[in-house]
């Protein structure tokens, strides 16, 4: 009894009145119980910090974005020449087009490379090769995004983008997209590999037993079985690419403001890059009346987009767990 009593600390008050007195006596010193109670409350408080943070993020975004949405001249947010927040021109399509291009280019890089690496590591690699390659991919995952921004602007732009039709000397959406793509390779690889590792070995053995070759087993048995995890990895990667700031800020080829363009070889600002460039350069966010609030409005749009994608991705991940 003594061992069980402190476990139900939360309910101990009422429980102790209902059970015979002897149990209460066995429950130990009240000092010890008080300490237990305090510690469990502290832990609960620590867990609640994340809820408070979520609440504060939502409040901050909605309250400031609300001021923007209430006061802005909506004609300035659509069909203008570009994103000039300091002059009161908030053309959202400019940012959305840039976000679309960089994310698309990033996924063209990250999807095949990340998925291929994951298939190799999960299905083909010997354990010694896995032990060699996995830490290297983890190193890639740990590199800060400013490094990819530098690399995209000063190596990818002159050496890669210049060879596929773009300008080498400055940043562009292509350069930024390639940089973001490299950044998301380890993310795609690790989630996809986890998904494939969750496929039971018996499925592979059954397939091999029916005479299927390794490649056929991988393509027809393992990948379909892991498909929800693979989809999840793509969704999470898109969400990551949409939210990536520094690579686009440094290598996107536009600072402070951007003219609307649909050519990916031009420079432009994605949503997070627009936020960063609004806040940088000067000590304060200065400009026309609503410039500061526009920061939060763009942040809200970005937040809702990535939240939606993450929730969908979460569903897919949960599905693998259910299946096996």
């Amino acid at each position: 009894m003594q061992t069980n009593e402190p476990v139900s600390v939360g309910a101990s008050g009422s429980a102790r009145q209902n059970v015979p007195l002897t149990t209460a006596a066995l429950a130990g010193s009240p000092h010890r119980l008080r300490k237990e109670n305090l510690i469990s409350k502290l832990m609960y408080g620590a867990a609640l910090v994340s809820v408070v943070v979520s609440g504060l993020i939502m409040y901050a975004l909605f309250s400031e974005a609300w001021v923007f949405m209430r006061d802005v001249d909506w004609a300035q947010t659509w069909g203008q020449i570009g994103w000039f927040p300091r002059r009161g021109i908030y053309d959202m399509p400019t940012l959305l087009i840039a976000s679309f291009w960089t994310t698309l280019i990033a996924m063209v890089v990250a999807a095949p490379l990340g998925l291929g690496a994951a298939i190799y590591l999960s299905e083909y690699a010997r354990s010694s090769h896995r032990a060699l390659f996995k830490p290297i991919l983890e190193v890639l995952a740990g590199i800060p995004s400013v490094v990819f921004g530098f690399f995209a602007l000063l190596w990818l732009a002159p050496n890669v983008v210049a060879n596929i039709g773009g300008a080498g000397g400055r940043g562009s959406m292509v350069a930024a997209g390639l940089g973001v793509g490299i950044l998301t390779i380890p993310l795609v690889a690790s989630i996809s590999e986890d998904a494939m590792a969750a496929v039971p070995k018996s499925l592979r053995e059954a397939s091999a037993g029916l005479g299927a070759r390794k490649a056929v087993t991988t393509l027809r048995v393992v990948l379909p079985a892991a498909v929800s995890g693979l989809v999840a990895s793509m969704i999470v990667a898109v969400s990551r690419a949409l939210g990536e700031t520094m690579v686009v800020f440094m290598a996107g080829g536009a600072a402070d403001a951007a003219v609307r363009t649909i050519t990916p070889y031009d420079g432009s600002l994605t949503m997070p890059a627009a936020m960063a460039s609004l806040a940088s350069g000067t000590d304060q966010v200065v400009g026309e009346g609503l410039t500061f609030q526009s920061l939060f409005f763009v942040g809200l749009v970005l937040f809702l987009l990535t939240l939606g994608l993450n929730l969908i991705g979460d569903r897919f991940v949960a599905r693998i767990r259910e299946q096996y």
Binding site: A47, S50, V51, V53, S54, L56, I57, A60, L61, E64, V236, S239, R240, L242, G243, E244, T245, P272, M275, A276, A279, L295, F296, G299, L302, F303, T306, L307, N310, L311, G313, D314
Partner: peptide
């Protein structure tokens, strides 16, 4: 609670910057 934490992990870092600013 766990869902909230997982989603916080996916919030873009600039948005945390907005929170800090706020």
């Amino acid at each position: 609670l766990e869902l909230v934490i997982r989603n916080l992990a996916g919030v873009p870092s600039v948005v945390y910057g907005l929170l800090g600013l706020f």
